[in-house]
Write a protein that binds this DNA or RNA. Structure first.
Lengths: 193, 193
DNA sequence: TCATGCTGTCAAAGATGTTCAACAAGGGCC
DNA sequence: GGCCCTTGTTGAACATCTTTGACAGCATGA
């Protein structure tokens, strides 16, 4: 039901750090029994306990739950197999779109002169970052606006309102990554960026 | 102590979906009281309860714990402010290195002819993907080897053994992303890729 | 062989999380 | 006003998680 094996995941992380249950327990401020029971999946730990334990390794909770699913996935993507999402002007090529199990989406973005993600600022869950490869782009995040050239980069919390705009007169190329993936679900085509 | 406000995070997600405590509880198979108490941080829910609740929205647990920390972070990175990690031959420019709170690291990689991540295959936690910008690279993942050209891309589970090698005679440029970040901690300089 | 120190497991007692059922506050409507 | 429906909160009972303290297994070394 849970779909995620908390016990084995914890054990694997603990062993990879060569810690005993008692040693980890001591660092985490819990008892060895707690760790034993959790590793056997005899109990479902409280978030606070789990956090204490992970902090002692240290492993972030989100890291702990990353890899929430497993399967044979495509690894290599010839440019012809990238999934293109365009709205007439700008073009986004997704590396392995519609794969909900991934923790990131990677996008090869092409903004022709004048391209703009829109006056209404984008806001959504997650984080995103990227590197400008060619041309230049005007990026606004919250109330800060900057002009980024080839070689420059950015990284921000996607909950901050943001907007991309090519105000120059040559195409701008960016490679970006988002987590969690914005375009992974086959359903709606919301223009998260 | 916890450093992460489970209650408010849950409330925020619930409200953004315009669900009442009772409605969410019903879908999740728990009671409204549970949700009320969690949102007030009166209790630290068990992982199983939290998972039931998140599944009902739906939100993955890793998504839930993604912005695990908040603070004013640098957004814009002029190329001069990228952190370069090199070993003489290959060069990796990190976008905002040493920021443990991030869920991804983004790297502008330059492989001169002959550059190689080494005969001993790389293996580590997480996922990684990228796009080849210029030149060509030989990428091996598990027992599959491919030659990727400019415009091609890749994505794989970093636990699979992997190796990058520039077998051509021109520099290869890649923009890649990793999650969780491989180079975020100020401590050791392990060559995760 | 016996002692020592480590490992992981487990039963019972104690602490914490969850449910049930009741309650007050607010809005809409007659 | 009165009624009805919704909302979120809370006390007491119940279920679950955590600790305490013990145990067996397996090394190392006297």
């Amino acid at each position: 039901m849970s779909g995620f094996d908390v016990g084995n995941r914890l054990k694997q992380l603990r062993l990879s750090r060569e810690l005993s249950q008692r040693e980890l327990a001591k660092r985490a401020g819990v008892t060895n029994s707690t760790i034993s029971l959790i590793e056997q999946n005899s109990v479902s730990p409280s978030v606070s306990s789990l956090k204490k334990i992970l902090d002692a390794m240290p492993v972030s909770i989100s890291e702990f739950f990353a890899g929430e699913s497993e399967s044979q996935e495509q690894v290599f993507y010839p440019s012809s197999e990238l999934t293109e999402i365009g709205d007439g002007t700008l073009s986004w090529k997704l590396v392995g779109a519609r794969r909900p199990n991934r923790s990131m989406s990677i996008i090869h973005e092409h903004y022709p002169p004048g391209a703009d993600t829109g006056e209404e600022m984008l806001e959504h869950e997650g984080e995103e970052g990227g590197v400008v490869i060619a041309g230049a782009i005007e990026l606004q995040v919250a109330d800060e606006v900057r002009q980024l050239q080839a070689g420059d980069a950015y990284y921000f919390d996607s909950r901050l309102p943001h907007r991309f705009r090519n105000t120059g007169d040559s195409e701008c190329v960016i490679v970006s990554a988002n987590t969690p993936p914005s375009f992974s679900d086959g359903g709606d085509e919301q223009h998260h960026v």
